[in-house]
Design a protein around this nucleic acid. Structure first.
Length: 300
RNA sequence: GGUGCCAUAGCUCAGUUGGUAGAGCAACGGACUGAAAAUCCGUGUGUCCCUGGUUCGAUUCCAGGUGGCACCA
């Protein structure tokens, strides 16, 4: 029997969780989450993890499975999720992947080139250098260590330059030598589905969901991880705004307003990413029946 | 009902001594391979309330209308 991974994605707040559960139920299968924040066990309200009822209905993987202290990344996700999929495909022909972390989805569908994890000490020293000497100093280093990547990288983006430098420095080989730019082949076929709706409706949904999160105790949840605010896992919409409030930089109302705005912007960024993928079939969140029909037609 | 003030971008407003306009916020478009809910780049999106008048030319000046606000009745 051929194996198929059905990927369900779309902007935050569109309703992926509930649509995903209906689809998983129909195909009697399990859900592999591709959400870079729902993966953390310390977070639940601000990441909008599925409810206990929802989790009872369909078996979910990679929901609150790791700690914010773990230094997780897309490559680790690729390895772990592929291993899991191999197991799951032994008993199922269709597996549903649900989530909005586009890089994580790409890691599964196309793969990420193999290279070492970034050395945290090197990263820290490069960050320091960025602060004291500025971006130009890092650019010059990159020009020497990896002239090829220097030509194509966004030279205004510190994260990109730092990452290329840290890999080049710790391996002694240019970062670009690790980049194959080739999609890996997978032992399963892939069907990609994305949810979207009218932008104004999406914004209303997002704004209302943030209000509900606040009512559900988002502030207390943020407070509970406040001492670890430096962790990358917490450099996230819904938490960083509270940290700014706790630090006395902004009012509580401003924090909530910014969470709404940043969520809206995040949704737009997600849509931008998915738009360029021509293999994606778009649906509205109320087209569950049509989605199931589409999947069945594709499988045949 | 009378008088005064106001009407410009989605919002708050600036401006044009008459040559069709700009800030903040919001919004929109894009990039993306170990930080990705991250990080970075780009874009004013406009019946200047409506109708007339004056003028080569009106968003700007004048008249009337409409709407809002304030005060007086």
């Amino acid at each position: 029997m051929p194996k198929t991974l059905v990927v369900l994605t779309g902007p935050t707040g569109i309703g992926k969780t509930s649509v995903g559960i209906k689809i998983a139920q129909h195909f009697n299968t399990e859900i592999v989450s591709s959400d870079s924040r729902q993966i953390y066990k310390e977070l639940s309200i601000g990441t909008a993890v599925p409810s206990k009822e929802e989790l009872r209905t369909v078996l979910h993987h990679f929901i609150q499975s790791h700690s914010i202290t773990e230094n997780y990344n897309a490559s680790r996700y690729e390895t772990e999720a592929l291993n899991l999929l191999e197991d799951l495909f032994k008993k199922k022909d269709i597996i549903l992947m649900v989530g909005g972390s586009m890089l994580y989805i790409d890691a599964i569908c196309k793969g990420i080139d193999i290279m070492p994890d970034a050395d945290q000490e090197i990263r820290a020293s490069l960050k320091k250098e960025l602060e004291t000497n500025g971006l130009e100093s890092l650019r010059l280093q990159l020009k020497t260590l990896d002239p090829e990547y220097y030509k194509s990288v966004d030279l205004k983006n510190p994260n990109r330059i730092i990452h290329a430098l840290e890999i080049s420095i710790q391996t002694g080989k240019p970062y670009s030598s690790f980049r194959s730019n080739k999609a890996k082949s997978r032992p399963f076929s892939i069907i990609k589905i994305a949810l979207n709706c009218n932008r104004e409706i999406l914004h209303n949904r997002i704004n209302q969901r943030v209000e509900k999160m606040v009512e559900a105790g988002l502030e207390a949840e943020a407070r509970s991880v406040y001492t670890q605010k430096h962790l990358n896992a917490l450099n996230t919409v819904g938490y960083r705004e509270w940290f700014a409030h706790f630090d006395g930089e902004i009012t509580r109302e401003k924090a909530i307003e910014l969470i709404k705005r940043n969520s809206r912007r995040y949704a737009r960024k997600q849509i931008t990413w998915v738009r360029k993928d021509e293999t994606v079939k778009w649906f509205s969140p109320d087209q569950v029946k049509e989605i199931i029909e589409y999947i069945e037609a594709q499988i045949k």
